[in-house]
Amino acid sequence: MEKRLIKKDALAGIAKKMADKFLVWAPVKKEDNVLFEPLQKNAEPNFAYLNSKNAPKNVFFPHTETMMKYTRTPKGMVFSTEENKAAESVLFGVRPCDAHSFVLLDKLFDQEKYKDGYYITKRQNTTVISLACVKPPYASCFCTSVDGEPVSSDGADILITDIGSDCLVEFITTKGEKLASYFGDAKADAAADAKKNEIAAKAKEAIKSKIPAHEIKPILDKNFDNPFWNTIYGKCLACGTCTYMCPTCHCFDISDEVKGSDGVRLRSWDSCMFPMFTKETSGHNPRTSQKERWRQRAMHKFKYYVDMFNCIACVGCGRCVMSCPVNLDIRKVVEDISKL
């Protein structure tokens, strides 16, 4: 597909122009963090960011969302279906690891049977523009170990790569191509392509943190009961931060809230790190301690998801590594498993 060149400082202007017509999610500075938020008028997107504090999964899978509404009548509650619609949106400037996470989440939410309309509608109505990591931002980045690359178009409709003088804009999908008019008319030449490939190779080289993520699947197949699982969870506080920050974690709760005569049914993020997650009414809990919960997290990402969808449910963004209050490092866990 077509490729174009734009000036490096043109990005913010393009995002703002798109915001006149679409709901544009862009990286915005909030106190000490950069977060993906709907771009407000007069707000300045920050494309010089490293990566957003939170994964942008909330664009398709909000922290809390209304599934349906209902009203109390003398005969009981009568419900009205929440119209499942999403504004035409652009997710502007996500990192390739996070764009990769959307491909992984699609496999769960957009299965042949039981399609999740809430997720799918937002996903279909959103154009994803990835902003390549020409300089991988953190020492904890390990995307290259989990099928990713710092300059990758996986999950993106448009990929933008800073090639020094200009930015190379590649339209990956027809959905991305529909936004071509926003990116000027300077066609990219073969030299720009060559430069990008050189930068991509260098960026890949720069990812120093490597884990044997693919090697551990056959080991996990056989080591559900290994005493190793007793050794990793001791310091885990069950705070759930890792799952909250994770771009691929997707477990959720469904709850009801009533105010006066009106109520809503909501879905909100939940976490396999919480004891209540699996606790049954009888009091029985299949995952009795943090050991089972941590094993679940590791197994789900590196074995169960592979069994189900033939891909690892980790994109190597390193958020869980950076955010864990007790430095429980998934990279170390994977490495230790590889030695079992």
């Binding site: 997707h250 709760d253 469904i254 009414t281 789900h300 169960y304």
Partner: peptide
């Protein structure tokens, strides 16, 4: 098992794969 969604998404009744 404890369940919420009932359609293999919410993660609660995940046993192995």
């Amino acid at each position: 098992m404890r369940m919420k969604c009932g359609i293999g998404k919410c993660g609660r009744c995940n046993v192995g794969s």
